[in-house]
């Protein structure tokens, strides 16, 4: 499937000298016009994968084709068809937004006659028209991200790589960026490879999600399919009286496997169990609750099911385990 706008990765490995395997033999394929969400905690290997796919880092083993071109042998061709917004915005604080666009357009060989109009159009689109002639050193984090996106789009790339594009953004900027990404796919047919550590982002945006942990893809599919795979909902109870916690856990334990949680008592329900059965059982024991909730499976549940850890817990673990992980 090395179609013009797709991505195909086979057995990709990237080892760092004196370090662990940041990417440990991953296979994936992204169809043209698809938004692929690459989900995982910090240090899982997401950014390393993006660096390899965007020709910033050679792989240790395996092959990767982007837009039909081999990332090792045909780097210049890959670079000419991709747009990239990396985690760190990589901007020159002394240049203005317009300077950046001019530079990027020159580097990407956008015809001279089109450069100005293209810059104006993109500045308008990302809402930076008013700040276009100010030096980037005075920009907020959100403005830098928006400029980064505009720069990635200067040469109308067929494939767009966004490495954690909304990390550190306020909710409003985050939603605006999501809308822009969706529009790019819808109107321009751009293929998007998006890494994120936010479940909601992958859920809202991605057609398909690859979940990566310790450099390996542990699950892949559409968010709905992945959640269906887990299938069973969970029940979460908050006791009225903390002393009842154990008794409640014992009752709930009859209906499924317990889930680790500090705030509430939770179990993943066995097939065929309904909420009414649980309510009746708790009532029979005379246990009263502050809240009882039936939750549909989330991507975090998928992560938990595949790795035995929650996404949040894995992120914390990655923080105390320096050296493991991405770029």
């Amino acid at each position: 499937m090395s179609a013009a706008n797709g991505i195909e990765v086979v057995g990709l490995v990237r080892e760092y000298r004196k370090g662990p395997r940041a990417v440990d033999g991953i296979d994936l394929s992204v169809a043209p016009g698809e938004i692929y969400g690459f989900l995982g905690p910090n240090g899982a290997g997401k950014s390393t994968t993006v660096h390899v796919l965007t020709t910033l880092l050679p792989p240790t083993a395996g092959t990767a084709r982007v837009g039909g071109f081999d990332v090792v042998k045909e780097g210049p061709k890959v670079r000419s068809i991709i747009g990239v917004a990396l985690q760190e915005a990589a901007l020159d604080p002394l240049l203005t937004a317009r300077d950046h666009l001019r530079l990027q357009a020159t580097l990407q060989s956008v015809p001279k006659s089109e450069r100005r109009a293209r810059a104006d159009e993109l500045l308008e689109r990302v809402g930076l028209a008013d700040a276009a002639d100010r030096k980037v050193q005075g920009y907020s984090g959100g403005m830098k991200r928006r400029l980064d996106l505009a720069l990635a789009l200067v040469h109308r790339p067929r494939i767009l790589f966004l490495d954690e594009p909304t990390t550190g953004l306020d909710p409003q900027s985050r939603t605006a960026l999501w809308e822009e990404v969706a529009r790019l796919r819808r109107e321009d047919g751009v293929t998007v490879f998006l890494t994120t550590q936010y479940l909601e982002e992958a859920d809202v945006l991605a057609d398909r999600v690859g979940i990566i942990d310790h450099g390996r893809i542990v699950a892949e599919g559409s968010p709905a399919a992945l959640k269906d795979e887990i299938g069973r909902p969970s029940v979460h109870a908050i006791p009225c009286d903390e002393r009842d916690r154990e008794a409640i856990a014992r009752v709930l334990g009859r209906f499924g496997e317990p889930l680790g949680s500090t705030r509430d008592v939770a179990v993943r329900l066995r097939e065929g169990v309904g909420l009414a059965d649980i309510v009746r059982a708790l009532d029979a024991e005379g246990l009263t609750l502050l809240d009882l909730e039936l939750r549909a499976p989330t991507l975090d549940d998928v992560f938990l099911a595949k790795t035995g850890r929650t996404l949040e817990g894995a992120a914390e673990e990655a923080e105390v385990e320096p050296g493991r992980g991405g770029v």
């Binding site: 670079r79 991709i82 990589a90 901007l91 020159d92 990027q104 580097l107």
Partner: peptide, 17 residues
């Protein structure tokens, strides 16, 4: 400075040659 600050990545990504 460009390599340290990450700006070089932008150049490496954008430059075909």
């Amino acid at each position: 400075r460009d390599f340290e600050g990450g700006f070089a990545k932008r150049l490496l990504l954008a430059a075909p040659h």
